[in-house]
Amino acid sequence: MPQMDLAGQKYEVDEHGFMQETSRWTEDVARAYASLENVKELTADHWKAINYLRSYYLQNGICPMVRRLIKETGFTLKRLYDLFPNGPAQSACKWAGVPKPTGCV
C-alpha cells in the first residue's frame, strides 16, 4: 500500500492518492491536498462542500450523487469545478478524506 505525506503525517493511500483511513482525516489534510492541486486557501464554500461530503459519507458509506451535492450546497457544477479543479469525485472527495468511489460511477 503506498503512503503519502500530508501536513507532516504519513497516511495510507491508494494509487491515486485517496486516503484509506478516513478516521484519521483532519482539516490540515484537506488543506494539504488542496495545495497539491494549487489551491492555496480553502474558503467557506470549500468547507461547505467538504463537510457535506464527509458527513454524507460517514452516514451512508458512499459519496452522495453530484445532483444531491449541487442541491445541498446550492453550487452549480461549474462552481464546483471552480472550487475543486478535478471535480467533485477526483478532488472534493479526495480532499474530504473519503475513499475513491467504486463501481460504475
Partner: peptide, 17 residues
C-alpha cells in the same frame, strides 16, 4: 452494488430524484 449503495441509500436516492 459495486457502488457501495445499500438498499436504504438506493431508495433514498431514487426518492430524491
Amino acid at each position: 452494488s459495486p457502488t457501495g449503495m445499500s438498499p436504504d441509500v438506493l431508495r433514498d436516492n431514487v426518492a430524491f430524484l
